[in-house]
Design a protein around this nucleic acid. Structure first.
Lengths: 329, 329
DNA sequence: TCCAAATATGTAACCGTTTACACATTTAAA
DNA sequence: TTTAAATGTGTAAACGGTTACATATTTGGA
């Protein structure tokens, strides 16, 4: 490993001068600067971030905690975060919590121990994992919080829109799928849909699900049609579940959207590739990631942040699992 | 921040003793150990990994470099890596390269500067990004390499199987989609399929594609049916492309699998939720991630590794975009 | 010409650990 | 009882950077 001392020796100056050249701080004579840079190139020196981090008590690392990167909603968030962080030269220490409090604590610990300068967390753990006594900024992503800066989509509004759209398009016996209880965004969208449905004149029933995993999605779908065979509209808790419902409905020989309308939530990339392509409520995941990153960087730089709670708009994506708007209302 | 010195003071011993307690090295009297542990609990001390890393010149960090986490094949790999690394207490420094040599170099640099003890890379960059002069172990994932330890699926065999299966099931005019030229696994599967097809008696044509992105997949699909409208079998370069082909075929009113058979590659989680569910060549992504992690940890620990090149089996997943095996051959 | 400010550079302390080494003290074999 | 080995603990030097401070030297206005 080539150190700053090697560069100092090679260029015939002190380590302080080398450091000054590298960090562009203090006064350095142009000739000296050139000599040092030459030595740097020569020796292919690149400063040890660990040593830097130790002295300065801050790194160029950001902690990113997601529930599960395997859920197709999150890679987009992650890319948004990464692409934005990249610009500021920040790198990601990354972990999946599986919504498990212990793992969450573990990662938080790791982040701190490694001098990260900020954390973006998309976990929904109810238990008070202590973000409180962290001395670095935290931004919650895909999760509302009154206590902390956060970036999230308007889930309630999304649920409401989904319900209104499916009603407007003529579904009369709707099944509303309620997502996992511990996942706040799932509850928000559920509440929004529930309210809208309650105010409408259609029949509906609620079916609870307890996970967003691929392996389980098929199960909820089968259960849905077994329990409510005459359903003619499904408001799914997310696009994965919607995909499973679509799959099962087609398997049962239903015509989509004639016999059954389906609206998902998230608008994951593959939703547009389904057949029929999935109508859904879009969360701008990539942009949310970017917003969270931007916000966090501002907080790190102690810039004055006007808006600590960024609510992203949610839009209805009208594809082919929903019908034309019913003119008769 | 509470340091080892605070603990030393609190427990009335020297920092060396505290360190010995924490690392369970050297001799420590049981009473002393208890005093120290009490102080640790008391002060909620947890050692600064940065300082540790600086002195020991090694961290508990692993660099993970993927092409693009947004491609649904990679989250699985990543989870496999993470879950296995977790066991050894390793954490991930994570980046997406977009198969871009500069980004790759940047991340490699970051990894080194942060004292990672090993790297797992799934990039396919042709240009000689210098993994050579790294002094830490590197495992290539989803990428064959004679020079470096690697974990990969048998792409060629996968391509061969796909071709054989689609022929066996009666497709006569096959379109073979060739994946991006710079992605080796895509070429391997292509070569395998090409060979098998060449040895068969069916007609086939090759169509080249240049990316695996969602946004482009639909384009290839449309192009495919515009150019080769009488195709009755498609060997897709991966499941995303296969999904797009399926989508487009259904949109054009084709019956699947009667008019057209499709075989994908990867077996990403959503493939089983398509309708009809996608027949595909499965790569055990999660297991590959785990294998790569296991291998890397062994290399880090300088254990004797018998097999540096781990080829994972590839299997045909017979779902509903392929027909029953044609009895007439 | 003088002198304060600006420029240029080096020395050494510091960041929070680990560990080599020195120095007790205790244990137990002879 | 002696003493070598085993046990227990502390001091200080690393690790590779940054920066406060000291010390020139140069610049340029009065």
């Amino acid at each position: 490993m080539v150190t700053i001392r090697d560069v100092a020796k090679e260029s015939g100056v002190s380590v302080a001068t080398v450091s000054r050249v590298l960090n562009q701080t203090g006064y350095v004579h142009e000739d000296t600067r050139k000599k040092v840079m030459a030595a740097v190139d020569n020796l292919k020196y690149s400063p040890n971030e660990v040593a830097r981090s130790l002295y300065k008590k801050k790194s160029k690392l950001i902690g990113l905690l997601l529930p599960d990167i395997t859920n197709p909603f999150f890679p987009q968030l992650a890319r948004g975060v990464e692409d934005e962080m990249q610009k500021g030269g920040y790198r990601l220490l990354f972990g999946n919590s599986d919504e498990n409090a212990e793992k969450e604590m573990d990662y938080l610990n790791t982040f701190i121990q490694n001098n990260v300068v900020g954390i973006i967390s998309a976990t929904n753990n109810k238990t008070k994992t202590n973000y409180k006594d962290l001395s670095i900024p935290v931004v919650f992503l895909d999760r509302t919080s009154s206590d902390y800066p956060s970036v999230y989509a308007d889930g309630k509004e999304g649920g409401r829109i989904a319900a209104e759209e499916i009603v407007k398009r003529g579904s009369k016996r709707i099944t509303l799928l309620k997502g996992p209880a511990h996942i706040q965004p799932a509850q928000d969208r559920f509440q929004g849909a529930l309210e809208a449905l309650s105010q409408s004149t259609v029949d509906f029933h609620v079916m609870s699900t307890t996970s967003f995993a691929f392996e389980d999605a098929e199960k909820w779908a089968k259960e849905l049609f077994a329990t409510y065979p005459d359903t003619d509209g499904v408001l799914a808790s997310n696009d994965i579940v919607a995909t499973a419902v679509l799959h099962e409905a087609l398997r049962l020989g239903k015509s989509i959207p004639e016999d059954l309308q389906i609206i998902g939530f998230d608008d994951i990339p593959q939703s547009s590739l389904l057949f029929p392509s999935l109508s859904t409520i879009r969360q701008p995941a990539y942009e949310m990631g970017k917003e969270a990153a931007t916000l966090l960087v501002k907080l790190i730089n102690k810039e004055n942040v006007q808006q600590q709670h960024i609510q992203m708009p949610v839009t209805f994506i009208d594809r082919n699992t929903t019908r034309e708007v019913d003119a008769h209302g």
